[in-house]
Simulated scan of single mutants.
Amino acid sequence: LVLLCFRLLLVVVIAVIGFPRWAFIARIIRSQILALRGRPFVDRARVVGSSDFSIMVRHILPNLLPQIAANGALVVANAISIETSLSFIGLGDPLQPSWGTLLSLAQRAGAASAGAWWYLGAPGVCVLIVSLGFVLLGNALDDTINPRRRTIP
């Protein structure tokens, strides 16, 4: 029963982190779909008799995937920061290893006042590097995909 409660807590943490983020992604996808819907290649596909499902799968979805990937990388970086924060203040799953739990345990043990910076430094640097990596990946994908952000040499 205790194990089931902790697993339920993990589902709650996932829901708390993921549920508010869907609106951000949905707005981006909706605006891209509305922009793509009026493009000439969609009109041409409609004229030759393609079904709505075929137009969606063959024309609209391939144009959406890079945008979803770029924004997804940024959402992952944000989710890592939120999960670390929740685990640090004790709202994470205690059975799952987490950088926030490591930071919390080091802070409770007095690592900062004892001069043991490596207890705080290792998980802190890991969170920073992984989050920064996802942010840079999202920016790189956005730079390669978004024609307005491309620089002409």
Rank of each mutant, 00 (worst) to 15 (best):
V11M: 15
V11I: 15
V16W: 11
G18C: 11
F19L: 15
F24T: 15
I25F: 02
A26K: 01
I28Q: 02
I29K: 00
R30N: 04
R30S: 05
Q32D: 05
A35L: 12
L36R: 05
G38V: 10
F41V: 02
F41T: 04
R44S: 14
R44K: 13
V48T: 13
D52I: 05
F53Q: 11
I55K: 05
I55C: 07
I55P: 01
R58I: 05
L61E: 07
L61Q: 09
L64F: 06
L64Y: 03
L65Q: 08
L65N: 10
Q67Y: 08
Q67A: 09
I68L: 03
I68V: 15
A70N: 00
N71S: 09
G72N: 01
A73F: 03
A73V: 03
A73I: 03
L74Q: 03
V75N: 03
V75Y: 01
E83A: 09
T84C: 11
S85H: 01
S85N: 10
S85P: 02
L86G: 05
S87E: 00
L91M: 13
L91V: 08
G92I: 00
D93S: 02
P94L: 03
Q96K: 07
Q96V: 11
W99Y: 10
T101Y: 09
S104V: 02
Q107K: 12
A109L: 14
A112S: 10
A112W: 05
S113M: 14
S113P: 09
S113Y: 14
W117A: 13
W118N: 09
W118D: 09
G124A: 11
L128D: 06
V130T: 15
L137W: 00
N139Q: 08
A140C: 10
D143Y: 04
D143K: 06
T144E: 12
I145M: 13
I145W: 15
R149A: 14
R150M: 11
I152G: 13
